[in-house]
Each structure stands twice: as C-alpha cells, then as structure tokens.
C-alpha cells in the first residue's frame, strides 16, 4: 500500500468480542488508511456491523486494541468523546430524532458538542442539506420525509460535526429500491470529496465504483480482502465464492 508511511485512520489489532459465550469477533485485524474507502461485506451474522460499531464504541471489544485517529479506545471517557467527535455514523434505521426538525437534528451536535454559535451551526447545516439536495425540507419533521430523504438527512447530520471518518452501517438496507440510488449518489459524492469511509453494505455496484478495498467477513473473522475488481472477479476462498454466488443470484 502506498500510504503505509502515514499513521492509519483506524487500526484494529487482534480484536475479539463475545456476546455471552458466542464469539462474534475473532482476531479481527484491519487498518484503514487516511482517505481510504473500505467496503465491508459478508453474510448476515458475520460480525461486520459489530465490528463497525466497535470503532466508535457503541459496542465494546473485550480483547485487542482499536486505535482511531491516533487515540486508543479504552474506558477513558475523554478519549471516547474525542473519537466520537471525529467519527460520524450513519445507521440502517436512520435514527433521526423524531421530535426535532430536520434543521435541529443537524445543529444539535455542533451546538452542544462543538459549542458552535447557533447562527453558524444553522448556516453549516443548510450547506450540508444543500449538498444532500434537501434544503427545502429543513423546517419539517423526520416523520414527514421519505426513507431516502431521511437517510440523506442522517448523512448531513453526521457531516455537520465535520468528522474525519464516516462509518456507514448498512445505510441502504432499510430503503425501498427506488430510494437506494439517491442515498448511494450522496455517498459517492462524499467519497469523491476525500472522506475516510468504512461502509458495511451489500451494494456491490457502489463497492466497485468507490471502494479502494473490499473486506469480506464471515463468522466473525476477516476472510479475505483486496481491491473490488480482484475480490469480485477472482475470489480466492470458497466462502467468498459462495457468498458472491448467493448475492449475485439475488440480483
């Protein structure tokens, strides 16, 4: 890799996690370079969501080290605050705050966490809402928007914190087919802007278009990783071959 000299944006070293006795992450080791765009795929229950949620400590790992933007994730709350400020996250179920307007959803964190003046936060939010192409919805409530629009607001909301890294946890899985494209378009333009991205998704077209690297997980471990072309056209392991045949059959 060309960027090995630079410190990685995210480094996972032999991360292990158990739910009770179930071993959900097994010796997961992965580096994400600055500005790198990684797509994580794998069958359901393979631990890919758990892995991405460990990166901003929505889940805690029990063994190994996770270093994000030079700060190690520990029980230290201050370190956690630093990391969460720099890492944005987009969820499968949007998780917009239904009691706040679209604009308030976007300005809440900059005002409360970054201590940004309200006017400045609103200007910033409107900028990002224009970028995701829904500035005219700013005064509405999330319940009045379509799924695709809500997910684009969720992306804008995360971007308003000006994060260095963006995590996407199956951002299009809860959407109707006709809305997937508008969200993917937003993500593509974000990728083109040079954002470091880790994205759990089954959208192979998206992976081909923007990913520098595809990571395939199965049963809690990373089985194979490489460039999208190499992974999709020349899978090395049987598990990846099986997975690809299953998702391609579905399309």
């Amino acid at each position: 890799m060309s960027q090995t000299m630079e410190a990685p944006a995210i480094a996972l070293e032999k991360v292990n996690k158990w739910y009770g006795t179930m071993h959900v992450l097994r010796d997961v080791t992965m580096n994400v370079a600055q500005k790198e765009r990684v797509v994580v795929c794998g069958p359901s229950g393979s631990g890919k969501s758990t892995m991405i949620r460990c990166i901003n400590r929505l889940e805690t790992h029990q063994e190994g080290r996770i270093i994000v933007d030079g700060t190690e994730l520990t029980d230290d709350l201050r370190a956690l605050d630093t990391i969460r400020r720099e890492v944005g996250m987009v969820f499968q179920s949007f998780n917009l705050f239904p009691h706040l307007t679209i604009l308030e959803n976007c300005t809440l964190a900059p005002i409360s966490v970054r201590k940004m003046p309200k006017a400045e936060a609103e200007e910033l939010a409107m900028d990002f809402l224009r970028k995701v192409k829904i500035p005219e919805q700013a005064k509405k409530f999330p319940g009045q928007l379509s799924g695709g629009q809500q997910q684009r607001v969720a992306i804008a909301r995360a971007l308003c914190m000006k994060p260095k890294i963006m995590l996407f946890d199956e951002p299009t899985s809860a959407l109707d087919p006709e809305m997937i494209k508008e969200v993917l378009d937003t993500m593509v333009s974000l990728a083109e802007s040079g954002m470091t991205m880790v994205c759990v998704t089954h959208e192979m077209g998206f992976a081909r278009m923007v990913a520098d690297r595809v990571v395939f997980m199965d049963r809690g471990e990373i089985v194979e990783s490489g460039t999208p072309t190499r992974m999709f056209e020349d899978p090395q392991t049987d598990r990846l071959k099986l997975f690809l045949s299953q998702i391609l059959r579905g399309h």
């Binding site: 901003n56 996250m89 995360a158």
Partner: peptide
C-alpha cells in the same frame, strides 16, 4: 435514538 446521540458525541 440513544445510539445516534452517542455517535454524535453528546
């Protein structure tokens, strides 16, 4: 809801 708030750093 709580997770989204956590992820935003609140």
């Amino acid at each position: 809801q709580a997770e989204a708030a956590d992820a935003l750093g609140l």
